[in-house]
Amino acid sequence: MSQPMPPAPGWQPQIPMAPPEPQIPPAPPVPQVPIAPPAPQVPMPQQAAPADPAGYVTAPVAAVQPGPEPAVPLLTLDYVSAGYGQFRALFDVSFAVPMGCAVALLGPNGAGKTTVARVCSGLVQPTNGAIYLGHQEITGMPAHELRRLGIAHAPEGRSVFASLTVEENLLLEFRSSLGKTGAPAALERAYSWFPRLRERRNQIAGTLSGGEQRMLSLARVLADLPRLLIVDELSLGLAPIIVDEVFETLDTIRSQGCTLVVIEQHVNKALELADRVVILQKGRVVYDGPTDELGDLVGQLIPGL
């Protein structure tokens, strides 16, 4: 695998970045979101309209409006508690993910990072609190609807369909999010980022090596260019050389307008990439702020660094 990775030939960011036609609704108080604060909103240069053929964005999440104030964050967790059965894993977790940012979600084992990711993507429903995507409250929405709103989640571990081939794994995702027309380009993109997968396109995914499976589950969501990408245990099982490439890819897609939430044990790498950091401990947020202000606090909050 050579690096740095060039953008694939068919590179076409699929996030609704710029509207295809100037048909942006200017409506200031977004009608379908009653809970939205009346506060003035800001232009979100990379965010606009129902531009996708596959019904990717069902409604303009935040209308474009002139104004100098800070943007509404893309994702907001508001006093979210969650758990498994009777076991409570998250306690009043609140933080926000600004548009176009990369947020690193850090913390020791069992802190609840995975649970946060699952709550954001709708796999686990919060028992309390609310989640917003832009202005839209998305608490309680099933995972597949959130995916259609643009929240993609690469779960930790070998999250592939073991009985499908590599290509079927990819197509399943791309066809549903990008439609039949967008799928080939995304496929091409995935293969150019992970040439190994191209070699193995017809192999049954369950027989791939651990790292190859991880590449596959990353490729599935990366090449999709979702609005918000949540990656759990990004580099788990990947060889160092691939880890570097993946981080570069993440950087690339962020510059294409994709917002990132990255959970990662290689703290230094994560901090290099991230604009903001959220640190969890035992189910609570203990730090939430920009990376550069973390300073030497990091040594205290994340021991062992």
Binding site: D78, Y79, Y132, G140, Y287, D288, G289
Partner: peptide, 28 residues
């Protein structure tokens, strides 16, 4: 007023974000 929040035990409830948070339960 800071650009980050540093929550701590006993520091009182952090302020809610700008959006009101209706109590809601996920139910699927």
């Amino acid at each position: 007023g800071g650009s980050y929040r540093y929550a701590q035990a006993g520091s009182g409830p952090p302020q809610p974000p700008s959006m009101p948070a209706p109590p809601s339960f996920g139910g699927t």
